[in-house]
Design a binder for these strands. Structure first.
Length: 359
DNA sequence: AAGACGGGGGG
DNA sequence: CCCCCAGTCTT
């Protein structure tokens, strides 16, 4: 089936220019040192919605601790969450371990090399499947991420809204024909590298672009108007109160978050949502007594934390307090920990910084 | 088709 | 303050 966007398009010339540019100008990145499918896989999961510079140190540490699929399959969940601490989207690493365990058990430790099989793995969507298949196995499969949609929307002047899920399929359809059959790995990575280094969201560097002669947006001077992307709705905010409670041994009370949902299974200090004008000290004391069976005396506010998610903001006032009566026993999800032990637990980033400031 | 799910950097 | 980033899963 002939692809409309590819009519009068020099596909071969485009492939050659893009691949040659990538082979000569690609960045030196740790996950490019090996084509091992497990290593490629880990890097692709980490890179989802996350910048290259952020990922580099996490990737290196992760590979030292979990060098093989078997090593990751056998790891404790607390260890993998700790390795992911600060990276965000924590379900990525839990899904990765689930999927790696399936690879070890069902595929004898070998990452499958067909889109059909690899797509059944937890956390491996259409982009990641294409990335692993092309980079690790040299298969001519499309790998459409945000970069690729931006680059191709400019090259072919595609005005579909890239915020809509259905739009991704338009780019995949083009790529099934356009992807280089000689070097799918360099072609796909080249498209992404181009988006990261040259064909950037604002003010693309068309004068430096290796494929500007193939670019219809550049020919018409409309590259800055593309891609079309609808806005997300704006944020809402919530008032919160949190408390650092210490017992007579100067230990701090922490609890594990629920199994699912926001920041699932990470650790935190006790906290509660409040309304404007509430007496937060009083609410915290009551909550500690009712939910934790611990009576406390609140000393005062020690910090104010603004916790920003994509769609909501938590404004958290953090208080310090001491136990006045008996302290309840520990459970699997509630612990009294020495300050020096806190670093062993995985926290959300703002809480990590707070715990680092405790003495 | 729309929300949920993190965090950091840049204009 | 808003947008963006090597997306996927759930509803």
């Amino acid at each position: 089936m002939e692809q409309q966007h590819l009519r009068d398009f020099n596909s071969t010339g485009f492939q050659i220019d893009l691949v040659n540019w990538f082979l000569e100008n690609q960045r030196d990145l740790p996950w490019r040192e090996s084509k091992d499918a497990y290593r490629v896989w880990v890097s692709e999961i980490m890179l989802q919605q996350t910048r290259v510079e952020t990922v580099i140190p996490y990737y290196q540490a992760f590979m030292r601790e979990f060098p093989t699929a078997e090593a990751l399959a056998e790891a404790e969940e607390d260890r993998i969450l700790k390795a992911w601490e600060g990276l965000g989207y924590y379900s990525r690493v839990r899904n990765l371990q689930t999927a790696v365990r399936e690879v070890v058990e069902k595929y004898n430790g070998v990452v499958p090399d067909t889109r059909e099989e690899i797509s059944t793995l937890k956390g491996v969507g259409p982009y990641t499947a294409g990335a692993i298949l092309s980079i690790a196995y040299g298969k001519p499969e499309p790998a459409v991420d945000g970069n690729v949609m931006r680059v191709l929307s400019r090259i072919f002047i595609i005005e579909e809204d890239i915020a809509k899920p259905a739009t991704r399929k338009i780019f995949e359809k083009i790529l099934y024909e356009l992807v280089s059959k000689e070097n799918p790995s360099a072609f796909n990575q080249g498209l992404m590298e181009l988006g990261a280094l040259i064909c950037t969201p604002t003010s693309p560097g068309c004068l430096l672009c290796p494929v500007r002669e193939h670019c219809r947006a550049n020919q018409k001077g409309v590259q800055a108007e593309l891609p079309i992307k609808s806005k997300k709705k704006k944020q809402t905010s919530k008032q919160m109160a949190a408390v650092v409670v210490r017992n007579e041994k100067n230990e701090v009370l922490i609890e594990k978050r629920p199994e699912t949902g926001l920041l699932a299974r990470l650790w935190q200090v006790p906290n509660i949502e409040t309304n404007i004008g509430d007496n937060q000290e009083e609410i915290l004391s009551k909550m500690m007594l009712e939910d934790f069976d611990v009576s406390i005396k609140v000393g005062g506010q020690i910090q104010q934390v603004e916790h920003v998610f994509s769609h909501l903001i938590w404004n958290i006032n953090v208080y310090e307090a001491v136990v006045t009566g008996k302290a309840s026993a520990e459970t699997a999800t509630r612990k009294w920990v020495k300050t020096s032990e806190i670093e062993q637990y995985a926290f959300q980033s703002h809480i990590r910084r707070l715990s680092n400031s405790l003495s």
